[in-house]
Computed example of a mutant assay.
Amino acid sequence: MTDHPGISAAARAAMADWLAQMKALDGASPATLEAYAGDVGRWLAFMAGHHGGGQGLAALASTSRSDLRAFMAHEQGRGVGARSLARRLSAVKSFTRWIADRSDTDATALLATRAPRHRPKLPRPLTQEGARAVLDEVATDAREDWIGARDMAVVTLLYGCGLRISEALGLTGADHPLPEVMRIIGKGGKERLVPVLPAARAAVARYAALCPFEISRDGALFRGARGGALSPRLVQLAMEKARARLGLPATATPHALRHSFATHLLSAGGDLRAIQELLGHSSLSTTQAYTAVDAARLAEVYARAHPRA
């Protein structure tokens, strides 16, 4: 908030209380809280400049739709895209609703404002052949066998279990040896059960057997070259080298392996609800993006098989 001048002390205090509630009651992650703090901070700073001074809580709760539209136009003028604008609007609405509930103010007009439409980017999964090639290739450039085994174990968890990279690197020695079904704590502290394929258990077991550092119950399972917790950047670098050798596009990232897990399950007849649970998505609409990916891939296959004259 220190980088947003002109905001009233009351508004700063209210935002701090609102963020604290989101953390305590809604389980919002640190990244979500940081993003919402930035969004609402920009909104409050804009309102201060727009009206020539910091706004009190009553004024903020009864903000007009024209004020909000002016803010959105201002942000668009700064080059902010539709997706980010939608998130900012969501943050402003949530904060305004919170203030209105506490000041007995009617915020209906502002809350009815709609976000600009945006076309969500579809996930860019690898083909099944590409995913297998990455798993085979990622260990070949490692300077030590245990590091190659480590990188292969991590990417196998991303593709074989649909884990986020933060979830894989968040595993500790207490998780080894991996069980047949693993409990994962994902975004917002949400827990889910994930089946662990024998190939993933074997890859992690091989890494653990070769790792030169003691794997304690409370310490990170995956270690860097000096024994500390493995950095996500090192996994990304291993993927970059592997995709360069394989001639894969820049979209072949660690997170693309998670997308590939979901898309390939769907292609094999997997149930959308079950895939939602495996990925830890709060909303089915997020998982439904993979149906569009699958349909797009089928269309490409059809076009190649039946080219137009």
Rank of each mutant, 00 (worst) to 15 (best):
A203D: 10
G224F: 02
K187H: 08
A205S: 02
L163Y: 06
G162E: 13
E144A: 15
A203T: 11
L178C: 10
A250I: 06
G270Y: 09
G188P: 08
A242G: 12
A142D: 11
V235A: 06
A208G: 05
E191R: 11
D218V: 05
T253G: 01
S231T: 04
D141F: 14
G162N: 13
V154K: 10
S166Y: 03
G269C: 06
E137H: 05
I215R: 12
L197E: 02
A153I: 07
R226T: 03
E180M: 13
L210I: 07
R150L: 07
R217W: 05
F213C: 01
A242C: 12
G162C: 12
T251P: 04
K241M: 12
R143E: 11
P195Y: 02
A200D: 05
R192V: 03
T253N: 05
L169C: 03
A203F: 04
L193Q: 15
I215N: 11
A149R: 14
I215T: 13
R150E: 07
A262G: 05
L230C: 02
G247I: 00
R217A: 15
T263W: 05
H255G: 02
A225C: 00
I165N: 01
L197P: 01
A229K: 15
V138R: 08
M239C: 14
A244G: 04
A133Y: 09
H259C: 08
P232Y: 01
G186L: 05
T156F: 03
A244T: 10
I185H: 14
Y207Q: 13
V154L: 11
C211M: 01
G228F: 00
G162H: 11
L266T: 04
Y159W: 14
V155F: 02
G170F: 03
I184G: 10
A229Y: 03
L197M: 10
L197V: 00
E240K: 09
I165L: 15
G224E: 01
A202F: 02
R258C: 06
R150W: 02
G148P: 12
L221F: 01
A205W: 00
I184K: 06
G162D: 07
E191L: 09
G219R: 05
F222G: 07
H264L: 06
V235H: 02
A238E: 02
P232C: 01
I147M: 15
P198V: 08
G160H: 09
G224C: 03
G189S: 05
Y159Q: 10
P212G: 01
R233K: 12
T172C: 13
G148Q: 11
P179H: 10
T156W: 03
G188E: 06
D218P: 01
P177L: 11
H264K: 04
G188K: 08
G160V: 04
M182F: 11
H176L: 15
A202P: 00
